[in-house]
Write a protein that binds this DNA or RNA. Structure first.
Lengths: 212, 212
DNA sequence: CTATTTACTAGACACTGTCTAGTCTGGCGA
DNA sequence: TCGCCAGACTAGACAGTGTCTAGTAAATAG
């Protein structure tokens, strides 16, 4: 090892960077704090100064992942085009991210037994807020979807349900591709079909064509 | 320990059973071959006779999971009722399974780096075949969905796309609930909305109402 | 310049998965 | 019926891991 000042000065960032690379190469099983320390050229206990736990490191990775995905989705929304085109672009961006960084995606949407970090929670919330930008404009009127429809179904509520349905479909598509259950091309088809089906359904039409 | 014949006689089944319980209690991180051996009252090396690897144990668990899920989906399909009711029942069964056995579900749909076991592959295929039973009847005519539609889009192809879209939505819903991104009730809403949106879309209407 | 807080080192511990060599035994061929 | 042998199981070892602890170096605050 080349001589290094006692204080690394950048350890936290380097560890996260190496961790993401290791995740891509060998999955979460191949990720060990000690190897990360070795790669960074520090002792095996050094990471503890920045991450109390291995879980803390994983949480930080997930948080970073949410930020990156939010950025990609935001870019897809910002690109001009018809509503359906934008819809498809967002879906493809979401799915592509989930497939290319499959292990990271699993970390982001893993079943949490212990209560999640507020920072992680916030990063996830930011993604879902960003998703709002891909939704059609709000309109009034009762819903035409399948769930029990009552007077409480405000336009905002409909928009929210529209978003949830969209998010679930993209999320599931990424999972199915990742687990080799379907191909990437089939995933693209799902995205396109989802966009068409959602828009063709009562809610989509209503949201698109009704006066605001 | 009470005396036990040298040959356990049932070790493999007991290990799998204990493993499923441990998965439910402490997630995949809490699962160790050595503890399973301890619970079964055998030495730490004994599991190796039945599972060459820890991964082999996990694969067997996933395979069992696919079988159980297939059974539940099959039962939901078999129950009489309108098409949309059946659709919702299947969706709810799928999502419920994925939420109640979240860790097992993650195992079943994990990103596989190494090539998957043929048995596991077959179990997964069986689930997707069973899903066909929840789809509407096939009809002729061109597609009305969003993906590029050409003369190659046979009715069977449309049915298949319908199924993929359905599967992805259910899968994603389960993941979103499991990761605490949405509530179980919101998951139910997604299922209902998905059923309605799919049926209201061109493909659903065509498949339902066209002459066979 | 001193004191404190932070980053890091080094050693230890319990635990894990996996490999190996050896022991037991149920069931098969002779 | 007997011998034996493949398969189930034991026990020990090894490298690797996450985490804890005590101590050291250095950046920073007073």
């Amino acid at each position: 090892m080349t001589s290094r000042p006692f204080h690394h000065g950048n350890l936290r960032a380097v560890l996260l960077e190496q961790a993401e690379q290791v995740l891509r190469e060998g999955g979460v099983d191949g990720l060990s704090l000690r190897e990360l320390a070795r790669r960074a050229g520090v002792s095996h206990g050094a990471p503890r100064s920045h991450f109390i736990d291995k879980q803390a490191l994983l949480d930080a990775l997930a948080e970073q992942g949410f930020a990156r995905l939010t950025e990609k989705v935001g870019a897809a929304i910002a690109t001009p085009g018809s509503f359906e085109e934008r819809f498809r672009r967002v879906g493809r961006a979401y799915v592509d991210f989930g497939v290319d960084d499959a292990t990271l995606m699993e970390l982001m949407f893993a079943a949490k037994s212990n209560h999640p970090t507020p920072a992680l929670e916030a990063a996830a919330a930011r993604l879902f807020d960003t998703l709002d930008g891909a939704m059609p404009a709000v309109s009034g009127g009762p819903a035409e979807l399948g769930a029990p429809v009552g007077p409480a179904d405000s336009p905002a509520e409909l928009r929210f349900r529209f978003k949830l349905l969209f998010a679930a479909t993209m999320q599931g598509t990424a999972t199915l591709i990742t687990s080799s259950r379907i191909t990437r091309a089939q995933g693209d088809t799902i995205v396109a079909d989802a966009a068409a089906a959602l828009l063709a359904s009562g809610l989509g039409i209503r949201l698109l064509h009704s006066p605001a």
